[in-house]
Design a protein around this nucleic acid. Structure first.
Length: 283
DNA sequence: AAGAATGTTACATG
DNA sequence: ACATGTAACATTCT
């Protein structure tokens, strides 16, 4: 479930927990499929003894840069979480990887649905090579978005969700950005006017920055919903304008928010102010 | 208590 | 090559 703001929040918290410079002395894998790149025994051998040089985010991946040039990239998928444990508590049934540090702490990877994946590679491009641009990079301009959109006949929402087109957006922030830019999710990407692309570019950046500022979006109260390190909840849910607000009034025009299906994903839209016909403009 | 869930990918089909 | 749809992964949440 985590998208760019949630992953960024976790990275920030991992850095604040002072994990850089720490030595990994062991890794215990309880669900082999979590390790995507090798059998668990190979993973354990390859990561034991390594020092964590830095922790970064790219797209929705948490990147642990290791001292020998290898990279551990972790994708949380829907329900992955990290917990940093001090003592010797026994991991619960949803903890699939335990990383033991030389300072006595343990980093637990907790993942109820077991979709999360660890990629341990000596060639980072294998994992990072196909990703699209980072939406918060200074180099991602409205002009760049416009050229990328040109000639694309797909509908705008699935294109924004495509990580090879743009990195880090997910269902929440795409719905929020399209609402903010008054663009209907079903519009063909190539049909957007430049004024709309400029609005979309600004909206994408604003919703993501706000999500980061609010330390991510935690919906509901289930333990599988997003949490940063440990039990830390995000504060962004109250800032959402349309996501999971079906039937509630649009904050702009008071028409009820509708839930529709777009590319098999539930999609929240104000049919009154997110026009699918261009509002009479040539398109 | 059935359907949905913040994600990705492989495969089939057009 | 591009685009769309379905299924799969596995379990919990509403």
């Amino acid at each position: 479930m985590p998208e760019l703001p949630e992953v960024q929040t976790i990275v920030t918290d991992l850095l604040a927990a002072d994990l850089t410079g720490k030595v990994i002395i062991d890794a215990d894998v309880h669900w082999p499929a979590t390790i995507a790149t090798s059998p668990p025994g190979t993973f354990r051998r390859n990561i034991s003894g390594r020092t964590i040089r830095d922790i970064r985010r790219r797209a929705k991946l948490i990147l642990f840069e290791l001292d020998n040039g290898w990279l551990l990239a972790v994708h949380l998928r829907m329900t992955g979480r990290f917990l940093l444990m001090d003592g010797v508590q026994a991991p619960d049934k949803h903890v699939h990887v335990v990383i033991a540090l030389a300072d006595g702490r343990r980093l637990w990877f907790h993942d109820t649905r077991k979709f999360g994946r660890f990629y341990l590679v000596d060639t980072p491009s294998v994992i990072l090579g196909r990703l699209g641009p980072e939406p918060l990079d200074a180099t991602f301009t409205a002009q760049k978005l416009a050229s990328a959109l040109a000639g694309r006949r797909r509908r705008i929402k699935p294109l924004l969700l495509d990580q090879t087109f743009l990195a880090g957006m997910g269902n929440i922030y795409v719905d929020e950005a399209l609402w903010a830019a008054r663009i209907h999710p079903l519009l063909p990407a190539e049909s957007l006017l430049f004024a709309e692309i400029r609005a979309l570019h600004g909206a994408i950046r604003r919703v993501l920055v706000q999500g980061v500022r609010n330390a991510g979006t935690t919906l509901g109260s289930g333990q599988s919903n997003f949490h940063s390190l440990g039990r830390t909840r995000g504060r962004n849910a109250d800032a959402l304008k349309v996501f999971r607000r079906t039937s509630q009034p649009c904050p702009r025009c008071k028409a009820p928010i509708r839930r529709i299906q777009v590319a098999q994903r539930s999609t929240h839209v104000c049919e009154a102010c997110q026009r699918s016909d261009g509002g009479g403009m040539t398109r």
